[in-house]
Amino acid sequence: MKAAAFDYVRASSVDEICRLLADAGDEERKIIAGGQTLVPLMAMRMARPDMLIDINDVAELAGINDHGDHVSFGAGTRQRAIERSDIVSDRLPLVAKAVRNVGHQQTRNRGTIGGSIVHGDPSAELPMAALALEATMILRAVSGETEMPIDGFFEAAMVTNIEPEQLLTEIRIPVWQDARIGTGFHETSSRQGDFAIVAAAAQVALAEDGKVTRAAISVGGAAPSPVKLHGLEAALIGKSADGFQDIIALVDEEIDAETDVHATAEYRRRVTRKLVSRAIDDAIAEAGK
C-alpha cells in the first residue's frame, strides 16, 4: 500500500497554488491539505496524482472568522480547530454538533473542512451541515474568484463540481438571525467515529407560537451525495413539535439510497426517516427552550 510516485511542491500562497494548477497541462495535480481522505486513496492507488501541492503552509487558507451574517472558514481549517472554536459553538451550533461525530482525535487534528467538502464523501458530517445551511464556497483560479452555492456541488459519490484548475479557499456558512433557533444532528454508524451509515442534520427557527418559520435539513448516507431535503423543509413551515410526523415520508422522495457492505438500501431509507425525525425533534425542542 505505497503511493505511486509524484512530485511535491509546498506552496506558500494562494496565487502560487493557482498558477501550479493552471500550468498542469496533461498532469494531474492535486491539492493536499490534511490528507485524511486523499492519502488512503493514494495508498490503494485509487488516486495517483503526478504532483501534490501542499497547502498546509498557506496561512490565508486557515482560520475561522465571524462576519455577523456568516462565519467564514479557510478551506484548510482543521476539524479540530472547528471542534474547539467558540465562534462555531456560539454562532453555528449545527456545525458544532456535526464535527463531534467526525473521526478520531488523530484524524481531526489533520483533516480540514475544505478537504472534507471537495472529496464529497456521501456520509461526511461537515459537508452535510454546510449543505443544510446553504454555505457558499469561494473557489479561486488564475482567472479569478468564483462564488458557488454548495447545493449542487456534490455530483456523485466522491465526485464534486470543482474544476481541476480551481482551489477551494473559503467556506462561508450563513448565521441565522432569527430569535429562536434550534439544531439537531443524529447519525448511526457501525462504530462510533466511523463515517455515518445514515446521518441527519436539522436547524429550525420558531415563531413565538412554536411553529416552524424556517427549516434547513440535510441527510448523508442516503444517496450517493449529501442531500438537502428542500421538499421537507418547505412542508415543515408552520408545523410544530407534534405536528410533523405526517410529512416525514417526504424524505423518501428526495433520497436515493444504495446497498453496500454496511447497509441495505431499505435500511438506509427507513433509518433516514427516523433520524431526520429525531433531528427535527431536537431542533424544535432546542429552539423552544
Partner: peptide, 29 residues
C-alpha cells in the same frame, strides 16, 4: 496504512496524528 488502526500515531508538534497518512516531506518544519 489507511488511517484506521492508529498503530502509527505520533505527535506532530503537540497533536497526535497518523503517520501513515502524511508524507515525510510534509513534516519538515
Amino acid at each position: 496504512e489507511h488511517g484506521i488502526c492508529g498503530a502509527c500515531s505520533v505527535f506532530l508538534d503537540d497533536e497526535p496524528i497518523r503517520s501513515c497518512l502524511m508524507f515525510a516531506v510534509q513534516a519538515a518544519g
